[in-house]
Design a protein around this nucleic acid. Structure first.
Lengths: 206, 206
DNA sequence: GTCTATACTACGATAGAC
DNA sequence: GTCTATCGTAGTATAGAC
């Protein structure tokens, strides 16, 4: 379908070059269709951009769905269970950050973070909110010594560890002295992510 | 000087909108000069872009200089000294990430990370390398249980915690339920950054 | 060094054929 | 639904006056 193909290609282009950098002519050409198809299906460049935001949010949501289910919310958890569930969420996020698709997503999202447009609301409400809130709730159980705001901040910082794997991709490769992150390096990174997160989550409340 | 003014304004524009999104016309206009001044001083848009990369690298380097000096390299440090020096470096980086100027830098750098151009070399060699290598060396002292590669990964992850404060700015505000990060919130974030980093650095080698 | 002029290319939008 | 054709705008680069 032309609609889907345009959406897929547009995700790559907007992710790689940003809103202004991407060209509707090139998006249409790479999708094997005419530029006016964008007008027909999405109303214009801006409509296409917003559709891409929804698309990214949906993809992220479905990828994080399993981690969310595993970290069941309502149930009372022991501290060890909460720690394990939080680790699983951070690791799941890190795994997504290492996946090749998310390279396009991350630049898209980071741009929206710095200068939020209407697309940011869709990204946050569609994908981020549920994941962050769940992790924060688990941290509150794992670290009863932290107040609510400190638990939120800790959640942010833990996700930051995973985020750099994608957002700082070139620097990560440089520091590790590799050309790209092969499967072995990826699992080593995820293991380290889990280990450092465990240090934070299992800190003994004195 | 026209040269300096162009450089400063260009840093903002490229940071906010990326290479393709920024317009030499607008950069020149905001600098109060003619567009052809860019050709004269920088040879064209691309030359200006590379000059901005050098400019950002220099600014970062000078900001991190004090943290680098404090974490003196050659000297033998005790574990506690290494931990304290590493904490100071992470905190210094976090402080920079919270500074308003770095908002423009971060998007510039993140774009380069995902799709590195010649500008990335300048950023990495000019600013990042020294800071990362110093932190990794300190981690090696603080955590003798980690091998060299694990120490590198840990350094990356610690910097990731600080990076999200800038790169995920909009989401951070959302999670903390504030409009912007005032001074109190900033120091609370830095305190938490220090606390979680301490958890990782002071982990007892069994 | 800095400006004005202009040349040329590429952009997004839209109208209308099919 | 998809295409071609065209319009107006905005982009960078460059030549030449001062």
């Amino acid at each position: 379908m032309t609609y889907d193909r345009l959406l897929e290609i547009a995700t790559e282009h907007f992710g790689a070059k940003g809103f202004e950098g991407a060209s509707t002519r090139k998006i249409a050409a790479d999708s094997g269709t005419a530029m006016s198809s964008i007008t027909y299906h999405f109303g214009g460049k801006e409509g296409l951009y917003l559709a891409v935001a929804d698309h990214i949010a949906a993809r992220i949501a479905e990828r994080q769905a399993s981690a969310l289910v595993a970290a069941k919310s309502g149930a009372k958890l022991t501290r060890d269970q909460a720690i394990e569930a939080a680790l699983a969420m951070v690791e799941s996020f890190g795994r997504m950050m290492l996946a090749p698709e998310s390279a396009a997503w991350s630049t898209f999202i980071v741009r929206e973070q710095q200068a939020p447009t209407a697309a940011f609301e869709r990204l946050y409400d569609g994908a981020m909110r549920a994941v962050v809130e769940r992790l924060v709730a688990l941290i509150a159980v794992a670290r009863p010594d932290l107040d609510a705001q400190a638990a939120r901040m800790t959640g942010i910082l833990l996700y930051g560890q995973a985020l750099i794997l994608c957002v700082g991709h070139a620097a990560v490769c440089r520091v590790l002295e590799v050309e790209s992150l092969d499967a072995g390096m990826q699992s080593a990174l995820l293991a380290r992510l889990r280990a450092t997160s465990l240090c934070v989550l299992s800190e003994k409340p004195e």
